[in-house]
Nucleic acid binder design. Structure first.
Ligand SMILES: [Mn+2]
Ligand SMILES: [Mn+2]
Ligand SMILES: [Zn+2]
Ligand SMILES: [Zn+2]
Lengths: 140, 140
DNA sequence: CACACAATGAGACCAAGTATCAACACCCCG
DNA sequence: CGGGGTGTTGATACTTGGTCTCATTGTGTG
Protein backbone atom coordinates (compact mmCIF):
# COMPACT_ATOMS: atom_id res chain seq x y z
CA UNK A 1 0.00 0.00 0.00
CA UNK A 2 1.07 3.54 0.66
CA UNK A 3 3.01 2.52 3.76
CA UNK A 4 6.16 2.07 1.79
CA UNK A 5 5.99 5.58 0.37
CA UNK A 6 5.27 7.02 3.81
CA UNK A 7 8.07 5.11 5.42
CA UNK A 8 10.50 6.41 2.83
CA UNK A 9 9.29 9.97 3.27
CA UNK A 10 9.71 9.67 7.02
CA UNK A 11 13.20 8.37 6.43
CA UNK A 12 13.93 11.39 4.28
CA UNK A 13 13.15 13.60 7.24
CA UNK A 14 10.08 15.37 5.92
CA UNK A 15 6.86 15.73 7.89
CA UNK A 16 4.20 13.11 7.53
CA UNK A 17 1.24 15.38 7.05
CA UNK A 18 -2.40 14.62 6.33
CA UNK A 19 -2.32 15.70 2.69
CA UNK A 20 0.82 13.67 2.08
CA UNK A 21 -0.80 10.55 3.50
CA UNK A 22 -3.84 11.05 1.33
CA UNK A 23 -1.89 11.62 -1.84
CA UNK A 24 0.38 8.65 -1.10
CA UNK A 25 -2.76 6.51 -0.79
CA UNK A 26 -3.99 7.75 -4.18
CA UNK A 27 -0.66 6.88 -5.77
CA UNK A 28 -0.61 3.44 -4.18
CA UNK A 29 -4.07 2.75 -5.56
CA UNK A 30 -2.99 3.39 -9.15
CA UNK A 31 -1.27 0.90 -11.32
CA UNK A 32 0.93 1.62 -14.27
CA UNK A 33 1.78 5.17 -15.04
CA UNK A 34 -0.30 8.16 -14.05
CA UNK A 35 -0.19 11.87 -14.62
CA UNK A 36 -0.35 14.65 -12.09
CA UNK A 37 -3.75 15.45 -13.59
CA UNK A 38 -4.91 11.92 -12.74
CA UNK A 39 -4.07 12.46 -9.08
CA UNK A 40 -5.68 15.87 -9.08
CA UNK A 41 -8.84 14.32 -10.50
CA UNK A 42 -8.74 11.46 -7.97
CA UNK A 43 -8.39 13.94 -5.14
CA UNK A 44 -11.26 16.00 -6.49
CA UNK A 45 -13.56 12.99 -6.80
CA UNK A 46 -13.06 12.11 -3.15
CA UNK A 47 -13.39 15.69 -2.08
CA UNK A 48 -10.06 15.61 -0.32
CA UNK A 49 -9.18 19.21 0.09
CA UNK A 50 -5.63 18.85 -1.17
CA UNK A 51 -4.31 21.60 -3.36
CA UNK A 52 -2.84 21.19 -6.80
CA UNK A 53 0.49 22.56 -5.65
CA UNK A 54 0.71 20.03 -2.85
CA UNK A 55 0.37 17.20 -5.33
CA UNK A 56 3.15 18.56 -7.51
CA UNK A 57 5.27 19.13 -4.44
CA UNK A 58 4.84 15.56 -3.26
CA UNK A 59 5.64 14.19 -6.71
CA UNK A 60 8.86 16.20 -6.64
CA UNK A 61 9.74 14.86 -3.23
CA UNK A 62 9.05 11.28 -4.26
CA UNK A 63 11.09 11.78 -7.41
CA UNK A 64 14.02 13.03 -5.36
CA UNK A 65 13.82 9.87 -3.29
CA UNK A 66 13.64 7.75 -6.44
CA UNK A 67 10.21 6.43 -5.50
CA UNK A 68 8.59 7.74 -8.63
CA UNK A 69 10.15 8.74 -11.88
CA UNK A 70 8.92 10.99 -14.60
CA UNK A 71 8.62 9.46 -18.04
CA UNK A 72 7.93 11.39 -21.17
CA UNK A 73 5.50 9.32 -23.15
CA UNK A 74 5.91 9.13 -26.92
CA UNK A 75 2.81 11.27 -27.35
CA UNK A 76 4.43 14.07 -25.39
CA UNK A 77 2.53 13.63 -22.16
CA UNK A 78 4.34 13.57 -18.85
CA UNK A 79 3.62 10.62 -16.66
CA UNK A 80 4.97 9.38 -13.38
CA UNK A 81 5.69 5.78 -12.58
CA UNK A 82 6.18 4.28 -9.13
CA UNK A 83 9.54 2.63 -8.88
CA UNK A 84 12.20 1.00 -6.80
CA UNK A 85 14.97 3.44 -5.92
CA UNK A 86 17.68 1.26 -7.36
CA UNK A 87 16.30 0.14 -10.69
CA UNK A 88 16.67 2.50 -13.47
CA UNK A 89 14.88 1.86 -16.70
CA UNK A 90 11.27 1.47 -17.59
CA UNK A 91 9.36 -0.48 -20.10
CA UNK A 92 6.04 1.17 -20.79
CA UNK A 93 3.08 -0.56 -22.41
CA UNK A 94 1.74 1.85 -24.99
CA UNK A 95 -1.66 0.16 -24.87
CA UNK A 96 -2.50 -0.07 -21.17
CA UNK A 97 0.24 1.89 -19.43
CA UNK A 98 1.64 -1.06 -17.54
CA UNK A 99 5.22 -0.64 -16.43
CA UNK A 100 8.01 -3.13 -16.08
CA UNK A 101 11.28 -2.19 -14.51
CA UNK A 102 14.44 -3.53 -16.02
CA UNK A 103 17.73 -3.16 -14.31
CA UNK A 104 20.76 -2.31 -16.25
CA UNK A 105 21.28 -4.95 -18.88
CA UNK A 106 24.27 -3.82 -20.84
CA UNK A 107 23.67 -0.12 -21.13
CA UNK A 108 27.06 0.65 -19.66
CA UNK A 109 28.73 -0.87 -22.67
CA UNK A 110 26.66 1.38 -24.89
CA UNK A 111 27.47 4.53 -22.97
CA UNK A 112 31.17 3.87 -22.79
CA UNK A 113 31.28 3.16 -26.49
CA UNK A 114 29.40 6.41 -27.17
CA UNK A 115 31.78 8.24 -24.88
CA UNK A 116 34.80 6.81 -26.68
CA UNK A 117 33.47 7.81 -30.07
CA UNK A 118 32.33 11.29 -29.18
CA UNK A 119 34.88 12.42 -26.63
CA UNK A 120 32.09 13.38 -24.25
CA UNK A 121 32.18 12.44 -20.59
CA UNK A 122 28.85 10.86 -19.84
CA UNK A 123 27.26 11.77 -16.55
CA UNK A 124 23.80 10.32 -16.87
CA UNK A 125 21.46 8.75 -19.32
CA UNK A 126 17.82 8.11 -19.83
CA UNK A 127 16.50 5.01 -21.51
CA UNK A 128 12.83 4.42 -22.03
CA UNK A 129 11.44 1.41 -23.83
CA UNK A 130 7.96 1.44 -25.31
CA UNK A 131 6.02 -1.59 -26.38
CA UNK A 132 3.21 -3.92 -25.44
CA UNK A 133 2.88 -5.94 -22.29
CA UNK A 134 2.05 -9.67 -22.51
CA UNK A 135 -1.65 -8.97 -21.83
CA UNK A 136 -2.05 -6.32 -24.46
CA UNK A 137 -0.12 -8.32 -26.98
CA UNK A 138 -2.37 -11.35 -26.75
CA UNK A 139 -5.50 -9.16 -26.62
CA UNK A 140 -4.14 -8.05 -29.98
CA UNK B 1 23.18 26.53 -43.98
CA UNK B 2 19.44 26.32 -44.10
CA UNK B 3 19.50 24.99 -47.67
CA UNK B 4 19.50 21.45 -46.44
CA UNK B 5 16.37 21.96 -44.38
CA UNK B 6 14.65 23.72 -47.26
CA UNK B 7 15.58 21.04 -49.71
CA UNK B 8 14.15 18.37 -47.43
CA UNK B 9 10.95 20.34 -46.94
CA UNK B 10 10.59 20.75 -50.69
CA UNK B 11 11.11 17.02 -51.04
CA UNK B 12 8.36 16.43 -48.52
CA UNK B 13 5.98 18.30 -50.79
CA UNK B 14 5.21 21.29 -48.58
CA UNK B 15 5.31 24.86 -49.80
CA UNK B 16 8.51 26.82 -49.48
CA UNK B 17 7.09 29.98 -48.00
CA UNK B 18 8.77 33.13 -46.75
CA UNK B 19 8.26 32.42 -43.05
CA UNK B 20 9.55 28.87 -43.45
CA UNK B 21 12.71 30.12 -45.12
CA UNK B 22 13.26 32.63 -42.36
CA UNK B 23 12.74 30.15 -39.57
CA UNK B 24 14.96 27.58 -41.30
CA UNK B 25 17.69 30.22 -41.41
CA UNK B 26 17.30 30.87 -37.69
CA UNK B 27 17.60 27.16 -36.97
CA UNK B 28 20.65 26.80 -39.19
CA UNK B 29 22.33 29.66 -37.34
CA UNK B 30 21.99 27.97 -33.97
CA UNK B 31 24.30 25.32 -32.70
CA UNK B 32 23.55 22.72 -30.13
CA UNK B 33 20.04 22.43 -28.84
CA UNK B 34 17.51 25.21 -28.82
CA UNK B 35 14.02 25.70 -27.55
CA UNK B 36 11.00 26.95 -29.42
CA UNK B 37 11.23 30.01 -27.19
CA UNK B 38 14.78 30.62 -28.47
CA UNK B 39 13.53 30.75 -32.03
CA UNK B 40 10.61 32.95 -31.06
CA UNK B 41 13.05 35.34 -29.40
CA UNK B 42 15.39 35.26 -32.40
CA UNK B 43 12.53 36.05 -34.71
CA UNK B 44 11.41 38.87 -32.46
CA UNK B 45 14.88 40.42 -32.33
CA UNK B 46 15.08 40.59 -36.10
CA UNK B 47 11.57 41.90 -36.38
CA UNK B 48 10.59 39.07 -38.70
CA UNK B 49 6.85 39.06 -38.53
CA UNK B 50 6.59 35.31 -38.07
CA UNK B 51 3.98 34.09 -35.66
CA UNK B 52 4.55 31.82 -32.74
CA UNK B 53 2.28 29.17 -34.18
CA UNK B 54 4.22 29.08 -37.42
CA UNK B 55 7.39 28.30 -35.54
CA UNK B 56 5.77 25.40 -33.69
CA UNK B 57 4.25 24.18 -36.93
CA UNK B 58 7.61 24.16 -38.70
CA UNK B 59 9.25 22.35 -35.80
CA UNK B 60 6.56 19.68 -36.07
CA UNK B 61 7.14 19.36 -39.79
CA UNK B 62 10.88 19.08 -39.36
CA UNK B 63 10.42 16.52 -36.62
CA UNK B 64 8.22 14.42 -38.90
CA UNK B 65 11.00 14.47 -41.48
CA UNK B 66 13.54 13.51 -38.82
CA UNK B 67 15.47 16.75 -39.33
CA UNK B 68 15.04 17.85 -35.77
CA UNK B 69 14.23 15.82 -32.73
CA UNK B 70 12.77 16.84 -29.42
CA UNK B 71 14.81 16.08 -26.34
CA UNK B 72 13.60 16.43 -22.81
CA UNK B 73 16.44 17.98 -20.90
CA UNK B 74 17.16 16.72 -17.39
CA UNK B 75 15.85 20.01 -15.99
CA UNK B 76 12.48 19.42 -17.63
CA UNK B 77 12.84 21.87 -20.50
CA UNK B 78 11.96 20.82 -24.01
CA UNK B 79 14.64 21.39 -26.56
CA UNK B 80 15.04 20.57 -30.20
CA UNK B 81 18.22 19.34 -31.81
CA UNK B 82 19.02 19.36 -35.51
CA UNK B 83 19.82 15.87 -36.69
CA UNK B 84 20.41 13.48 -39.49
CA UNK B 85 17.29 11.52 -40.39
CA UNK B 86 18.93 8.16 -39.89
CA UNK B 87 20.86 8.54 -36.68
CA UNK B 88 18.97 8.03 -33.53
CA UNK B 89 20.54 8.93 -30.25
CA UNK B 90 21.89 12.12 -28.84
CA UNK B 91 24.60 13.06 -26.48
CA UNK B 92 23.88 16.39 -24.91
CA UNK B 93 26.47 18.58 -23.19
CA UNK B 94 24.87 19.76 -19.97
CA UNK B 95 27.23 22.74 -19.82
CA UNK B 96 27.03 24.28 -23.29
CA UNK B 97 24.27 22.37 -25.02
CA UNK B 98 26.48 20.89 -27.71
CA UNK B 99 25.10 17.78 -29.33
CA UNK B 100 26.81 14.70 -30.67
CA UNK B 101 24.89 12.09 -32.56
CA UNK B 102 25.70 8.48 -31.91
CA UNK B 103 24.34 5.78 -34.10
CA UNK B 104 23.11 2.63 -32.59
CA UNK B 105 25.98 1.06 -30.72
CA UNK B 106 24.61 -2.02 -29.09
CA UNK B 107 21.23 -0.85 -27.92
CA UNK B 108 19.52 -3.66 -29.76
CA UNK B 109 21.14 -6.19 -27.47
CA UNK B 110 19.81 -4.27 -24.48
CA UNK B 111 16.28 -4.08 -25.80
CA UNK B 112 16.08 -7.71 -26.73
CA UNK B 113 17.38 -8.70 -23.33
CA UNK B 114 14.81 -6.45 -21.66
CA UNK B 115 12.12 -7.93 -23.87
CA UNK B 116 13.12 -11.46 -22.95
CA UNK B 117 13.07 -10.71 -19.23
CA UNK B 118 9.82 -8.78 -19.17
CA UNK B 119 7.71 -10.50 -21.78
CA UNK B 120 7.01 -7.15 -23.42
CA UNK B 121 7.26 -6.68 -27.15
CA UNK B 122 9.38 -3.61 -27.68
CA UNK B 123 8.28 -1.23 -30.40
CA UNK B 124 10.48 1.77 -29.83
CA UNK B 125 12.92 3.25 -27.42
CA UNK B 126 14.43 6.52 -26.48
CA UNK B 127 17.97 6.90 -25.28
CA UNK B 128 19.43 10.21 -24.25
CA UNK B 129 22.92 10.62 -22.90
CA UNK B 130 23.92 13.64 -20.85
CA UNK B 131 27.45 14.70 -20.10
CA UNK B 132 30.16 17.17 -20.97
CA UNK B 133 31.68 17.80 -24.34
CA UNK B 134 35.47 17.86 -24.75
CA UNK B 135 35.51 21.68 -24.60
CA UNK B 136 33.47 22.00 -21.47
CA UNK B 137 35.37 19.22 -19.79
CA UNK B 138 38.76 20.90 -20.21
CA UNK B 139 37.29 24.32 -19.33
CA UNK B 140 36.45 22.49 -16.12
C1' DC C 1 2.17 21.47 25.73
C1' DA C 2 4.30 25.38 23.33
C1' DC C 3 6.28 27.02 19.81
C1' DA C 4 9.57 27.21 15.49
C1' DC C 5 9.35 26.36 11.35
C1' DA C 6 7.81 23.09 7.68
C1' DA C 7 3.92 22.54 4.95
C1' DT C 8 -0.49 23.92 2.97
C1' DG C 9 -3.92 25.94 -0.38
C1' DA C 10 -5.71 29.82 -3.01
C1' DG C 11 -4.67 32.15 -6.62
C1' DA C 12 -1.75 34.53 -9.79
C1' DC C 13 1.54 33.52 -12.95
C1' DC C 14 4.32 31.10 -16.48
C1' DA C 15 5.92 27.91 -20.34
C1' DA C 16 4.89 25.22 -24.01
C1' DG C 17 1.92 24.25 -26.91
C1' DT C 18 -2.93 23.71 -29.70
C1' DA C 19 -7.27 25.37 -31.91
C1' DT C 20 -9.74 28.58 -34.71
C1' DC C 21 -10.44 31.34 -38.47
C1' DA C 22 -10.31 35.16 -41.63
C1' DA C 23 -6.73 36.96 -44.63
C1' DC C 24 -2.98 35.81 -47.49
C1' DA C 25 0.42 33.87 -50.85
C1' DC C 26 2.36 29.88 -53.31
C1' DC C 27 2.51 27.64 -57.32
C1' DC C 28 -0.02 24.86 -60.88
C1' DC C 29 -2.70 25.31 -64.76
C1' DG C 30 -4.42 27.49 -68.68
C1' DC D 1 2.26 35.68 -67.69
C1' DG D 2 -2.16 36.02 -64.74
C1' DG D 3 -5.95 33.83 -62.12
C1' DG D 4 -7.44 31.06 -58.47
C1' DG D 5 -7.72 26.73 -55.43
C1' DT D 6 -5.78 25.47 -51.51
C1' DG D 7 -2.00 25.25 -48.35
C1' DT D 8 -0.19 28.53 -45.09
C1' DT D 9 -0.16 32.37 -41.96
C1' DG D 10 -0.62 35.24 -37.71
C1' DA D 11 -3.76 37.14 -34.16
C1' DT D 12 -5.96 35.63 -30.57
C1' DA D 13 -8.09 32.60 -27.37
C1' DC D 14 -7.58 28.46 -24.96
C1' DT D 15 -5.30 24.38 -22.68
C1' DT D 16 -2.16 21.70 -20.05
C1' DG D 17 1.34 21.11 -16.81
C1' DG D 18 3.77 23.28 -13.61
C1' DT D 19 5.83 27.19 -10.37
C1' DC D 20 5.60 31.25 -7.13
C1' DT D 21 3.88 33.86 -3.36
C1' DC D 22 2.16 34.48 0.88
C1' DA D 23 -0.98 34.45 4.64
C1' DT D 24 -2.59 30.55 7.46
C1' DT D 25 -2.19 26.03 9.48
C1' DG D 26 -0.32 21.92 11.72
C1' DT D 27 3.89 18.79 12.88
C1' DG D 28 7.05 17.12 15.71
C1' DT D 29 10.58 18.36 19.01
C1' DG D 30 12.12 19.81 23.31
MN1 LIG E 1 12.16 2.53 -11.80
MN1 LIG F 1 19.50 12.72 -34.30
ZN1 LIG G 1 -0.47 -3.43 -21.73
ZN1 LIG H 1 29.89 21.61 -23.77
Amino acid sequence: MSDELLRALDQAGVRLTGPRREIAALIAKRNGHFTAADLIADAGKRRLGVGRATIFRLLDLLAEQGLVERVDLPDGRHAYVPCEPSHHHHLVCVACGAIAEVEDCGIDAVTSEASRRSGFTIESHRLELFGRCPNCRSAN
